[in-house]
Design a protein around this nucleic acid. Structure first.
Lengths: 339, 339
DNA sequence: GCTTTTTGTTGACTCGAGTAGATCCCAGTG
DNA sequence: CACTGGGATCTACTCGAGTCAACAAAAAGC
């Protein structure tokens, strides 16, 4: 028995072990593993493959990452991965990344700018090949954080930031679609439950709501601000219901807000859509299963995720920053008054 | 674009650059960065810190990972990160990992065993320090996949698997709590909407439902199986409503199922809880905002995530596999008939 | 004043894999 | 028979950071 030659290594199996077992040099092992830059004789290749199989060799990703300067990993920063909309976006990004052989590091900023900064730092330290930043906040100094080394793309940001790639939807057009639909149902007092964005710039959804009303010659209804989440919508709903000019229809800036809104309306003893019609923005699955099912402006989340990932890892990596704006689609259900 | 100090190297800044700039050896830089194994004179330390600051040095994580054999990363495998329950669990795991300085690689298995295997392989190749496997499926050959090198823990698994760490809840006791509560409301025909688990073993929730009924001397009501998700609950609901012995109360094995169930009940023109009372399992946020709000068996998700992560990275890393079972708590809302 | 001890610093090796450049071997040619 | 071409393979250096043995300088001890 050739015990010395067929010595089973103790720790994890390295390229060296495979080389020894197959009786070749470490270079050949690399060539086989990567279809490497040089050809290997079929017979040798077979020997190496066999050795790999028997020893259970798996190339060390850290070593490869060190040598190659890339670890085939992207980072994703979202405010709250347990919020269904972000969860969906995260899922889509993960799938888009996986399709290209990239893994996804997930981090939650919890809507906290400091935490967001920390996470971006951390991702940069980990040499990710790019960062998808999906955050409602935005501060220009983020640009410095990224430096020039690390690719990034803003996903689902309200505003277009110079110097950054971005992928988003036409918020204004989407909101207008929804509000016009509510107007079509004969409503004349249409309120807005608007989420809070970091920069106090008017969000496209707010503009769309306003313009649709103006275009129809209607007065601009009451507006309440709150978080984009369920509690935010609940609070905004309570304020809208207490307004002097109580609206007969409300447009909410996110599905989650609309769900909180529905609760506020129910607690006030009113019914949707008979007393108050509701439409919202996002097109998440919750909208379909709420009661009543929400009429909502659907974002093409999967396409957006695709676009974001390809901006980071695609051919066009070194082109100037791109801004892609996707169209939305009105998904009509019952909360607006349609049967 | 900012032009910085004179000594700015072209590529990414390495330890060597810092050493040169500060006029010390690379070893000292390491010592400073890590509070390293050797002491450094305060004056020298200051010089190095200054150099680090000025050059904007960030240690290369891949190199560190290579040397240390750990990249401070955990992997998470869940069926569908856009399902709110998994999303919540994922969030909790991410936070627990971050607290310990670990990043989280997120992967979706899409309830597909092959995909799950591929992802585990991939995570193993990436030398993660541990894998949290939260999947409804389970196949014993997973054990081999992990080999002995890589730590793992099963999170939220129905059954305890020998050789694996696991963290779960007492499904049977939780289900019993819920069903007993429905019995307390005077119901005598209580159905079950049960999710589908890979191994055909009876799930604890099914047993709990059955035992609670038997203990109360009640007949075992109708049972329908479907996915753990909303469509699954919807389909199961339709079948339960069409049953000969139509139940007046239904226990659902997940919140998502219950939400699908609510829809089926509404479409049948019935009301919850007046015509049919509902209770479910999980305790996710959707349960709170559904209509009516769901009475549900709450899982201590955050504690479970903590436990799972600490099983992977804690002191007790090298102890034999542990099985931790957490208690659940009945969260009473309106869907059961309580005011 | 001349050892010891302590403190601070450094050069050099290591982790595991990618790959350029050198080397080997053999078939084919003059 | 020597000579070249070319395919297959190997040697050796590289990536960036951790850390130990070795060493220099300063402090303490007798």
């Amino acid at each position: 028995m050739t015990t010395s030659a067929v010595h089973t290594p103790r720790g994890p199996v390295t390229r060296k072990d495979v080389a020894r077992y197959a009786g070749v040099s470490t270079a050949v092992v690399s060539y086989v593993v990567n279809g490497g830059p040089k050809k290997v004789a079929p017979a040798t290749e077979a020997k190496v493959q066999e050795a790999i199989r028997i020893l259970g060799y798996r190339p060390n990703a850290a070593a490869r990452a060190l040598k190659m300067g890339s670890n085939q990993t992207l980072g994703l920063v979202i405010p709250d991965s347990s919020n269904p909309f972000w969860a969906l976006l995260g899922h889509a990004v993960e799938v888009a990344a996986a399709e290209r052989g990239y893994a996804l590091l997930l981090t939650n900023s919890d809507n906290n700018l400091d935490s967001e900064r920390r996470h971006i730092r951390n991702l940069a330290d980990r040499q990710v090949d790019g960062v998808v930043l999906a955050s409602v906040m935005f501060e220009p100094d983020l640009l410095e954080l990224f430096g020039t080394e690390i690719r990034s793309v803003l996903l689902n940001h309200a505003s277009v930031a110079p110097g950054f790639n971005s992928v988003g939807v036409d918020l204004e057009a989407g909101a207008r679609l929804a509000v016009e639909h509510l107007i079509g149902h004969g409503h004349t007092t249409i309120g807005l439950a608007m989420g809070i964005t970091a920069d106090n710039e008017a969000d496209g959804r707010e503009e769309g709501w306003q313009r649709a009303l103006e275009a129809a010659g209607l007065p601009v209804g009451p507006l309440a601000r709150g978080g984009f989440d369920r509690p935010g919508g609940y609070a905004a709903g309570q304020r809208l219901l207490a307004a002097d000019n109580r609206p007969t229809a409300i447009f909410a800036s996110s599905d989650m807000q609309a769900i909180g809104l529905l609760r506020a309306i129910r607690e006030a003893g009113l019914s949707v859509p008979d007393d108050i019609a509701v439409a919202s923005f996002d097109g998440s699955i919750e909208a379909e299963y709420s009661w009543p099912a929400l009429t909502t402006v659907e974002q093409p989340v999967w396409e957006m995720a695709e676009a974001a990932v390809s901006a980071l890892v695609g051919e066009n990596r070194n082109e100037p920053p791109q801004h892609r704006v996707f169209p939305t689609q009105l998904r009509i259900r019952q909360s607006c008054g349609c049967p």
